[in-house]
Nucleic acid binder design. Structure first.
Lengths: 347, 347
DNA sequence: AATCGGTTTCAAACCGCTTTGGATGGCATA
DNA sequence: TATGCCATCCAAAGCGGTTTGAAACCGATT
């Protein structure tokens, strides 16, 4: 059942039927009701493909997901962001199209999405320092929103981000207040912008208390269980080990915990751990009682917000760049406690 | 740059240009080369919206993701499956459209995708026992592939699945061979088909050795860290606790480990744990040395296979239902060992 | 020279909707 | 009665491709 058939059944022109269904004013109310009723009765749904061609709009938002080397993105955090964003899209009648491509084709993927007219806007994931994709997307000319920020990007752009710097600053201060002075950072990959901001928050907090950040206590790697485990292990085996750790995610935190427990230490007593908690549906930081003390900010909510922002930009192309900064809460759990008596160098 | 403009530049008709680009035989080879070159030079990309309308095909595959109650799906496993499938789609010039909807709208979501012509086929995720969606998708009439199987579905359908029953059967036998007789099962939600199959593999292995499965040693819940922790904790606190556990995923396994370590026990010595390892990119079961002994099967690979199968069905609608059973490997890690001397009931 | 089969090209219809630019009719106003 | 203005409806022209049916051209055959 298409528009023409429906119009024929009603003895009206396709024009009028189309207008009636789309709420245009130049159609008699009684006619409109008749049309609406007939549409419902015949279970008429306009063909999206035709609408898309006729309007020149895709009613879809694109997410490009590079594989391989920067597969930073195939991670649980991504699933939650997508869930949040996708929810917003379907509520607004938009599709979400995911383009999963090898790293080297990423640029093409954005251009393709635009050139082939598959989407009306895009979300840029996991921005790097001086991320070239910002300029690329400007060049491509579709509205876009960045999940995160890209230090060094000189062009203006819309973003939704957590205040990573402040979160890690506060977490570090919290540990300092508990008497810890040897604090390790199990960071994400530091070409990722968020990781840089986190490190600067951490370092600034230390410096402000007269402590020089010790390179041996800073690691940077993917946020997997295994690398959390290894990074924490290396630090714990230092002659002068840390009494507290900051971990980049729930997952690296679990790796760190494994390293801690393997050494017969107890979390919260022998060593304090604070993680950044993205509040993942499938990786909750405990239920009533948090497992880890954490800086928490829901990435799913970030997905929702980014999607809303983008739909706004798509609707009103005159709108300038929007930004939204989210603050993480500091959640006190069982993994932190006062610093144990000053550690004595081993060996 | 559209087809008409390109044709004008070449002094050819749109017909010929279209045919040249699409590899039709009725065009002179030298003309084809000229067209190809011009297309590349002017960076011509056919407008997808127009192709879709003209051909009546969407060149897209749909995945419906229910939120809320059955958010079983917003989990790390999903991200990896998507990555695998998405990879296949983009290699074949297909888009992946994700429809994230509240549970109660799931049925509509499938019908909409079809009625509006947004996709050429769909993947059905996380099938339940007697899943009504199988009949629904038959009714909708688009090709589809199920990731998993749905016990009780009487209609034929295409699927890609791991042999969950055999995996858990083998894992249980492995533990039995090590002398364990009290073996706990930390299962996923048992309205999910895969969870049922796993339990039957577990139970059958026990029964075959003359052990009656003990309800107190079987739990069923979401595959989160917290529920793994709680389920394992409950079993360990039993008067006659298990000496081995089977966990449904890496994540619930980590929860189980937390419960174990919290009780001062050592994994692999005081208690053996085997998990099912979906080989997630972001949740690797160790690197050289596996953390857990595990039944392993890559869900990402499953995504690739399901996508390939579906594209095949889309291309040839006459093709009957296809099926593909994957076998899990048993990976020996550090989390298993011989059963400790027979446990003495506590208290 | 006329006919023919094969190759190559093209004009035009079509996919199903939106949207522009009238046309029509009714009613109030001059 | 003629005029103008609304309100309502419609025909037709897109949107940018694909595809059908036919035309043009070619050398080869009669």
């Amino acid at each position: 059942m298409n528009l023409k058939e429906l119009a024929a059944k009603l003895g009206l022109s396709p024009t009028t039927v189309s207008r009636a269904l789309n709420g245009y004013p130049e159609v008699n109310e009684s006619t409109r009701e008749r049309v609406m009723a007939a549409a419902k009765r015949h279970n008429y749904r306009p063909n999206t493909r035709a609408i898309r061609l006729a309007t020149g709009r895709a009613f879809a938002i694109g997410h490009v997901i590079p594989l391989a080397s920067r597969h930073e993105i195939v991670n649980p955090i991504f699933a939650d962001f997508i869930a949040g964003a996708g929810e917003t899209y379907s509520r607004n009648g938009y599709d979400m199209v995911l383009s999963v491509v090898p790293d080297e084709n990423e640029e093409d993927a954005y251009r393709d999405l635009k050139a082939r007219g598959s989407v009306d806007g895009m979300i840029l994931h996991a921005p790097l320092m001086n991320d070239p994709r910002i300029a690329l997307l400007h060049d491509v000319g579709l509205p876009f929103v960045v999940h995160g920020r890209a230090t060094g990007a000189d062009l203006p752009y819309s973003w939704v981000d957590v205040n990573n710097r402040r979160a890690f600053l506060r977490a570090t201060e919290f540990l300092l207040d508990l008497g810890h002075t040897r604090i390790g950072l199990v960071n994400g990959l530091e070409h990722m912008d968020f990781a840089i901001r986190r490190r600067s928050g951490y370092a600034d907090a230390l410096t402000a208390r007269g402590i020089t950040p010790d390179p041996a206590l800073m690691s940077s790697d993917e946020m997997t269980e295994v690398s959390g485990y290894r990074a924490a292990g290396r630090m714990l085996d230092l002659p002068y080990p840390p009494t507290a750790l900051l971990a980049a995610s729930m997952i690296s935190g679990m790796g760190a915990r494994r390293a801690v427990e393997e050494r017969g230490m107890e979390m919260g007593r022998d060593i304090s751990i604070i993680i950044h908690d993205d509040d993942l549906s499938y990786m909750k930081n405990g239920e009533d009682v948090p497992i880890f003390t954490a800086t928490r900010s829901s990435v799913r909510e970030a997905g929702r917000l980014a999607a809303e922002m983008l739909l706004g930009l798509v609707a009103d192309s005159a709108m300038g760049p929007q930004t939204r900064m989210l603050e993480a809460e500091l959640i006190i759990g069982q993994s932190t406690g006062p610093a144990p008596r000053p550690a004595i160098p081993k060996g």
